[in-house]
Amino acid sequence: MDPIRMARASGRGEGLLRPMPVAGGAILVMVVLAVVAFLPAYQTELVTQMLIYAIFAMSLDLLVGYTGLPSLGHSAYFGLAAYATALLALKLALPFWLAAALGLACAVIGAFLFNLLALRTARAYYLMITLALSQVLWSLVVSWTDVTGGDNGLPGIARPVLGIRLDGAGVWLVFVALVFAVSTLVMWTLVRSPFGYALRGIRENEERMKALGYNVWRYKLLVSMVAAFFAGVAGILFLSLNSFVGPQALSIALSAQVLLMVLVGAAGTLFGSIFGAVAFVLLQNVVSSWTERWLFVVGAVYVLFALFAPAGALVWVRERLRSSRGRSR
């Protein structure tokens, strides 16, 4: 057997994923450089948005794909971190980085408290209770106009300074790409560690994991907090991208969108979520420039996925590759 065939055989079914970190890093660097060098500010911001949504979607994939916790309230942590950071920076005039750190802490603590309740349930009930809890935050933000600005949101948060000012679209993209790369690497390492195996074990047979001596509840709580942390990272980047945060950041719509990104890309693969986020931003922006009825097109795309690639794009591609490889032999 030649080495390439052997490598393929040992990689079985993960051939598409295994060289990902190296190849992915190289692609990221090239894309970012190309975008910064050649594209105007608007497109640069679109790419920035893709990366931010990708972090957000991957964080949800930790719950949905790896642990089997279907959360429909993931925008809670995105919005909580963004609002907390904005409020601390605006009302208490804290420096941005300190406000951001405290904002992340808020998201993690929020996840801890919410999941004390939510983890009493499973499956569809988990979905309902996460939805309800995120709606509590949303209605709080909408109604507490004195503090949160209600529907008008909180404008006027300056982009942070990191040695140089991160003002320009290009510089900001490079910074976001850096955060994206680090976040991806951390989550990727996490799901490939024994902690990650345990999460997949919980998804597939909770009882068996208990019999093996795993405190399933504690694992779920911990992964929820990790997921909230990265959702918070995405939320704060989004806040800085727009210099603004509004109730949309805590909406069901956003929770549903990010869940669709995960499912369309392929839940439980992490990289599928990146694809999902890229596809979502492209659809939303490119299609909306062609037609007013862009939501119709987006809906149709989701229906097509549900019918023909229910396991997600990445799994679909992987299966096509495998079957064509099988035929060529």
Binding site: Y197, A198, R200, G201, E204, N205, E207, A211, L212, Y214
Partner: peptide
């Protein structure tokens, strides 16, 4: 357990490590 309740998506080595 009865009926070899294994975790379908985990590899053999990952099972043993768990």
């Amino acid at each position: 357990p009865q009926g070899r309740r294994i975790f379908p998506s985990l590899t053999v080595r990952e099972h043993l490590e768990i």
